[in-house]
Amino acid sequence: MAPARDRRTGFSRRRQYSTFFGYVLAVAGAVVGAALLAASIFNPPAFSAARMAVASVTAPVASVLDAGVDAVASVPEAIGTWFHVHGENATLRAEAKRHRALLTKARVIAYDNRRLRALLRVRDRTPEPVVAARLVASTASSGRRFALLDAGRVQGVTPGMPVRGPEGLVGRVLESGPFAARVLLITDPDSLVPVRRTRDGMPAIAAGRGDGRVDIRSVNAANVRFAAGDMFVTSGTGGLYAPGVPVAQVEATGSDSVLAIPFAAPDSLDFALVERPFMPLPPPPPPRAAAPPATPSAPAPAR
């Protein structure tokens, strides 16, 4: 039998209640959306607090679901790795043999570096990690680039703390709630990271583009040439990011400003490390000049 074209509720109480509750939910959703839009425009701090409160509730649930999806997705990868393990083993052995000379040279350089730093009494300051947390969400299709971390003020996470992954720098904490934090990624247009080139120490700025990449801009000179494959790490300038953290690699040769690909991709990261802001050690006090020896006072004349 063909379905009836008359969609009026008629005398059916069930259809009447369904239609009524549908209208109520639609009106309530529109009112809540308008209220949130007004709060974000006229009272951003209140909207930020409400957003982080909701994120603190949804972040643990998203973390559990993300762990389950990762476990299921890892099964085909594990099966494929088992079939190709012999070929990968031979490739890795050949690569280790080729890099043995470079490894020996690097060890000699590292030993000389430690000896010279000890002679110069140079002290290293490593930022203390606060917590390792899961990145449960990130904006991959928006002009603004944020990520959600399933750790907040209860775990000691506060705004301004740098966030890094195993491959390199991820960003910094922008907002923190009780059990969740919002991370500003280095690819966001509002992100500026002081960096230096690894091969010669040239300072530069890594500015986010909003499309998953960053711009590397020279700061001290004009007509600076960048080569494809140049790697940049944090310089430690500004006191927020610790020096030596990998940031990005230049995509193509250019001058003054070039595109670079970040080492850490938030979309593929499971966990990230939240660290305390890096503060450079104060310079040592200048050595005090030796006081001149006291001269003996002349004896008083006898009267």
Rank of each mutant, 00 (worst) to 15 (best):
I261S: 12
T19G: 10
R15E: 10
P3Q: 08
G10P: 01
A118K: 07
A302N: 08
L169T: 05
R5D: 06
E77A: 15
L184S: 04
R303F: 13
S12M: 03
L25F: 14
R8P: 00
G238A: 09
V250T: 12
A242W: 03
T139N: 03
V183H: 02
M161H: 09
A46S: 13
A30F: 07
P280L: 04
R14Q: 07
P76K: 08
R134H: 10
A67W: 06
A30E: 00
D230K: 09
D112P: 00
V108G: 02
D124N: 13
A46I: 13
G210A: 08
L135M: 15
F47G: 01
E95M: 12
A140I: 09
V214A: 01
G33K: 02
P76Q: 07
G229D: 05
P277Y: 05
R145D: 01
A272P: 00
T58V: 15
M202A: 15
P286L: 14
R8D: 04
A62L: 15
V170R: 00
P299W: 04
V247H: 04
P285R: 13
L25A: 15
D267T: 15
V31G: 08
N43V: 11
V57W: 10
V233F: 04
E95Y: 12
G33Q: 02
G201Q: 06
S191R: 03
L174P: 00
A151H: 02
S142L: 14
L281S: 14
R209W: 02
P296L: 14
F271T: 12
N89M: 10
T81E: 14
A53L: 12
R115N: 10
A132K: 11
Q155H: 13
A132G: 08
Y23A: 11
Y111P: 00
R145C: 04
A290F: 02
G201T: 05
F21G: 01
S40F: 13
R117N: 14
A96H: 09
D270Y: 10
E251L: 15
L25Q: 11
V31F: 13
L65E: 06
A260I: 05
R197G: 01
T58E: 05
D124L: 13
V250R: 11
